[in-house]
Design a protein around this nucleic acid. Structure first.
Length: 328
DNA sequence: GTAAAACCCGCACTTACCTCA
DNA sequence: TATGAGGTAAGTGCGGGTTTT
């Protein structure tokens, strides 16, 4: 499931259907993701990475990325014929990004880079075991220093970290991947890293930050929607108070109003339809003169509803005369 | 079979850097 | 040119689930 966050569109639809599912997409999928993950881990490499992994996915079959073509060769696989247009676009983007290796040592040849990736991933997955759960103790993952996937990029001898900005194409590629899957298993991460010439850690971090941004925006949308709900309810409350005041005024003017059959009118605040229900044994409202208002002819208030009934006509005739004192 | 340790991963929070008005 | 705000890559700590011992 994808959040499908689009602020403008969501807000346009917020009034009728806003799914308050913070993080559900990620969380709900976590379990099976782990399952798949386990199936794809080292001890079970028979599954080919296709981001679908042959499992039933609730996600719509959006752009299907082919991220594991010929991993043994060049880090940037040659385009195949049967790919989708989107994949082709991504391939193009990746090809563009090829020349913008912002992080990897340029001295690495293509095969060497791939080999380095393999080694790095081995460290990433196996070596991570050596690293404690505290990331502080692990060494940098790059520069050939063993470390976990959570290691820092302390590749320049402990100097201040550099701000590495991903290229537009790399970001677009990651974005497309994120649309496909909000979370990555290790092999997907590795494949993406290979495709984009990034370290797996960078891909991992990007997805973490992307999920955080999605959640933040969704929270903003939810907040806005709840704000609008609050405004609507406040307005509804104000209107109901007004109607109550009108009814009380009518009751004061027409005491016989209290002898009406025990008919209750209920209004759905959302659709503003009025429905009537009679107490058991009570005469039908239509016989009593107050017919249930249809959804197309709903009076704007109970007073208007009352004024349209025969009682109201009689009452209107009475209003020309001084009202009798209320018995209560 | 159970408990503890180790491992792994995601998240929340934060920092540091970069870009731009 | 200096500067503050915003965006974002990356660091850190923690909790929870899984695997190993």
């Amino acid at each position: 499931m994808e959040l499908g966050l689009s602020l403008g569109e969501t807000m346009a639809d917020a009034g009728r259907d806003l799914v308050l599912g913070l993080g559900m997409g990620v969380g709900a999928r976590r379990e099976e993701e782990v399952e798949v993950e386990r199936g794809t881990r080292d001890r079970d490499a028979r599954r080919e990475l296709d981001f679908g992994c042959g499992r039933p996915s609730p996600d719509p079959p959006a752009v299907r990325l082919t991220l594991l073509p010929g991993l043994g060769g060049l880090p940037w696989p040659a385009p195949s014929n049967g790919r989708s247009a989107a994949a082709g676009h991504l391939e193009e983007a990746a090809s563009w990004a090829r020349g913008f290796d912002v992080n990897r040592a340029p001295s690495l040849s293509a095969g060497g880079a791939a080999a380095a990736d393999e080694d790095e991933e081995e460290r990433d997955e196996a070596g991570a075991g050596a690293a404690s759960s505290s990331p502080n103790t692990s060494a940098g993952a790059c520069g050939g220093v063993a470390g976990s996937s959570r290691a820092s990029d302390d590749d320049d001898g402990g100097s201040a970290r550099k701000k590495l900005r991903l290229s537009k194409e790399q970001s677009a590629f990651l974005e497309e991947s994120f649309k496909e899957h909000a979370t990555l298993n290790p092999k997907q991460k590795l494949a993406l890293a290979k495709q984009l010439n990034l370290r797996p850690r960078q891909v991992e971090v990007w997805f973490q930050n992307r999920r955080a941004r999605t959640k933040l925006k969704q929270t903003e949308v939810d907040c806005e929607y709840l704000k609008r709900c609050c405004e609507t309810l406040t307005e509804e409350n104000r209107r109901l108070h007004k109607e109550l005041a009108e009814l009380r005024a009518l009751k004061a003017v027409h005491p016989f109003y209290t002898h009406l059959p025990a008919t209750t009118l209920s209004m759905c605040p959302s659709c503003e339809r009025v429905a009537s229900s009679s107490a058991p044994g009570a005469p039908a409202p239509a016989a009593g003169g107050i017919a249930p208002a249809s959804e197309h002819s709903r009076p704007s208030s109970f007073a208007a509803l009352f004024s349209s009934s025969p009682f109201s006509r009689a009452a209107a005739a009475q209003t020309t005369q001084p009202p009798a004192p209320a018995s209560s």
